[in-house]
Design a protein around this nucleic acid. Structure first.
Length: 248
DNA sequence: CTCCAGGCGCCTT
DNA sequence: AAGGCGCATGGA
């Protein structure tokens, strides 16, 4: 589901086949989501020429970032803390099914639902949200939904700000700390210097650049900003998927 | 049974 | 400013 459209993507060698449930006049929305205008080789070129980055780029050749909807991205990451990825997917699926809007799907496919708007979720009780198995994150999600719906934080205006000011805005939301804020800045707004440091990236940085020593988070953040260049967020993704595949 | 999973918020030093 | 701990839930 992209926005409120059902899409099936298939890799066909060098091209991507996209099938939609309904006719779609122009495909700007899809080009934006897939970031087809991004010149990946130009970006990879800016990475530091050191051994860890060379290995990560080789291991994840062709890895790209998507451009996701800000609210969907934010809400999903609020639900992500100390959860495994499969469980996050289950929670999000349940949220969509219960509170999203039905979307048109091709004949023979199971029903699909959009990601529920902030306004819809702040009308839910915390108990209804907890019923989607999100546990203590329910209060965070509801609180964040209220602030978005009331425009206490205006997601649509963050792209006009610099990364620092945009991050400060996101940090006002309950359940949003530095890591989640940086995920939203990178995946939904495309700030190329946003560098989320989760447990995996922390492991990667320690092992690959600090001889496995324990390093304060502050120092890792400073290092990430200085070492990986103008597209450090992309570098982060290469490192992340590299360590996850090799379970370092 | 215990441990832990793409953190955050709050309470201690 | 920095470090420790609890928080729901489910699976290994």
């Amino acid at each position: 589901m992209i926005d409120k459209r059902w899409v099936r993507l298939t890799a066909l060698g060098e091209t991507i086949l996209a099938e939609t449930a309904e006719a779609t006049g122009n495909v700007a929305w899809l080009e934006s989501y897939l970031q087809l205008g991004v010149d990946l080789p130009r970006i990879v070129e800016t990475f530091p020429d050191d051994e860890p980055m060379r290995r990560a780029v080789k291991a994840c050749f062709g890895l790209r970032l998507l451009r996701q909807d800000p609210w969907e991205c934010l809400a999903s990451f609020i639900l992500s803390s100390t959860k495994q990825i499969v469980q996050i997917q289950q929670i999000v699926a349940m949220l969509c099914q219960r509170f999203g809007e039905p979307v048109v799907v091709p004949p023979g496919y199971s029903p699909g639902y959009s990601f529920p708007a902030a306004k819809r979720l702040c009308d839910c009780t915390e108990a209804e949200l907890r019923a989607c198995k999100m546990g203590f994150r329910a209060a965070y999600l509801k609180g964040a939904a209220e602030m978005i719906a009331s425009s206490a934080v205006e997601l649509s205006k963050l792209s006009e700000l610099g990364i620092g000011a945009a991050r400060e805005s996101l940090l006002q939301l309950p359940g949003v700390g530095r890591k989640i804020a940086d995920c939203v800045l990178l995946f939904a707004y495309g700030f190329p210097k946003a560098f989320p440091i989760d447990v995996w990236v922390m492991k990667a940085l320690r092992k690959l650049y600090f001889r496995g020593r324990r390093v304060p988070l502050r120092r890792l953040q400073r290092f990430s900003g200085e070492h990986f260049g103008p597209f450090s967020g992309y570098a982060q993704q290469y490192l992340f998927h590299y360590v996850r595949r090799n379970s370092l």
